[in-house]
Design a protein around this nucleic acid. Structure first.
Lengths: 198, 198, 198, 198
DNA sequence: AATGAATGAGACTTCATTCAT
DNA sequence: CATGAATGAAGTCTCATTCAT
């Protein structure tokens, strides 16, 4: 009995996801150029040929991974949009980010590898720039809501802190005092401290 | 008649530098894996073979580039060690760093590509970690000298800001308001603001 | 539809053999260092890349060729083990060896090139030494069975004669009187002559 | 004061010999293809360029080494020609050969490597064949002088024994009982034994 | 006579991609 | 839909040979 169209479509979707996430993890681990299609196929438990049935080239796969990445990131930060209190918003944002750094270091790796990576850059740049901008805008809104003096700059500063710490953590995972820095940052951005920036 | 030892030494030094800086620029531009020995030779205007007369492998060249990089960075930050006044020290440090970011973006690119890049990482990691540590310690000393409450954390925060901003600048050179952020940061770390951290 | 496992296995076996025997012949003809992967691929009628799908390096291929060689040699000399009469055993052994020398000169070439060749030697040495020992032991047993006075030395002498003649034959295939030497040797090692060694 | 023509010529001769013997040893040790001009120059303590002042190519050097080798071998076996008594001649020949095997294994290595070696073979073959023939003829003459039945075959047998043993010795220098085989061979070819071959 | 920097052809090897099944 | 054998371009590296000094 042949499978129904729905079943086939489901298989396709599932396999595509499988390839995508295998690629994502390997790209994060070994970089784009350092990952081979064979690696990806092996990790996904499929044949090399099948990967080309889903993605027409390695670059294509990269773009797809990139989009996936952004969608995932969006998902993570979606919840905070519904929070009303800006102080709470920042606190939860910090919580989310640090959980994210620790738990999903690979996202940061990808984010950085892709952005710095030659050949890959062109593809990825626009997306990340947009993404960064969105983040900056979001933060800016929060800071403006609070009434802080220079919300645009403050948001860029905050963003820099986050990405700088992530970078340092990735460089030296064993020894970077991530939890301590998180507490420190939360103090820097608690209600009392933020008041001083008005 | 053969060339004198001095002549030979000079040739070797000159060619080595030529190769080294060609490699440095290309690594910065296209990453380690994205740069071929052919690229480097072409940029240096020499044959592929000659590169191997000076560096026994691409990895060897990478290590040499790495060391060069650190030496260059050291040179840049050396002057501030002699400044006595910690407030001035920070101000000049910020000046130096921002000049550096703008002028020698390639250093940051290398610094990041090397550190994030798989396969390359092993070689470079120790060096960068050491270097980062040195930077953190230097900052910590300054903050402690001033009498700031949590010098270790503050130094890591400062470091994160710098590297985060550099990252954002590299991502979006055209639009990132580097000069504006520099002014902003200088205000954040001027004498008046630092006093509040005591 | 993908090929069945059996089909794939057969293809792999066939291609592997093809590469192996192409390599074997070329190694025998031009030596290990004198043979390129391109040569082998060309002789096998495949692409260079495919050779690496079957053997991970030229050295790996060498080892495989070596094993093949020994297996083939074993096959050749297996039958004589079942012969009871030691005099007949020697006669048939001589027959086999001389047929072998003439027919499969390449085996001897390999055997010698590999053993004498630097760099290659390390890999091959143990195998050939073992093999030689086995041969000596086998002969020794035969001579002892006959009751010859100094079986260990006689077996080494016999071995030396064989390999020396092979060497001379290879040096000068056109003019070396192989058949004549075979007859001569058979007389030297016939029952009557062997009796004198008791 | 410029050097006299004689002095210059002497320097040339000395340097040529230096290169030649450096090449000889390295070829013996690592084979022709395994030895680089750099190796040879380094061993001779001269520059690569100078080697080309004396030998126009690596192949040229090989041929020269080959000739040197034969001259050296000739020198070694010259003395026995003057011995009258054929029995003594054989005894001394065996002595000489075994001393030679043990002491100058490199000659045998070269002799074999060159003969079996691809590309090299063409050059070397004629010489070695001639040399071998000369040896066979010499032995044949001795055996004929003694009155042995089949001097041509006996001389080839003797030659095979020698080269076979050398081969086995080189394969397994540590364990091959060279001295023991020498004694054994001397008994096989002493007056008493030879008489039986008449 | 002597040097070693420089070249370039060609070796080994990897891997994205294609294709017969 | 699925496979992995097969290709070939391109990358790293070696080395005989040349040449300016």
């Amino acid at each position: 009995m042949p499978r129904t169209k729905e079943q086939l479509q489901e298989i396709r979707k599932k396999t595509e996801k499988l390839i995508l996430y295998s690629a994502l993890e390997l790209f994060a681990e070994k970089g784009f150029n350092g990952t081979t299609i064979s690696d990806i196929a092996a990790k996904a438990g499929i044949s090399k040929g099948l990967a080309y049935n889903y993605f027409s080239s390695k670059k294509d796969l990269l773009e797809a991974v990139c989009e996936t990445l952004l969608i995932e990131m969006d998902k993570i930060f979606k919840p905070i949009e519904q929070i009303e209190d800006p102080y709470l918003k920042i606190e939860i944002l910090i919580n989310l980010i640090f959980t994210q750094i620790e738990k999903e270091e690979k996202f940061w790796r990808l984010y950085m590898d892709f952005s710095l990576h030659p050949g890959v850059k062109e593809i990825v740049n626009k997306i990340t720039v947009d993404y960064l901008d969105t983040g900056f805008k979001l933060l800016e809104k929060i800071f403006r809501q609070i009434g802080i003096k220079n919300p645009a700059n403050e948001s860029k500063l905050f963003g820099a802190i986050i990405d700088g710490m992530s970078l340092h953590y990735i460089f030296n995972k064993e020894h970077y005092p991530l939890k301590q820095m998180k507490r420190f940052l939360k103090k820097k951005y608690n209600k009392e401290s933020l008041e001083k920036l008005k």
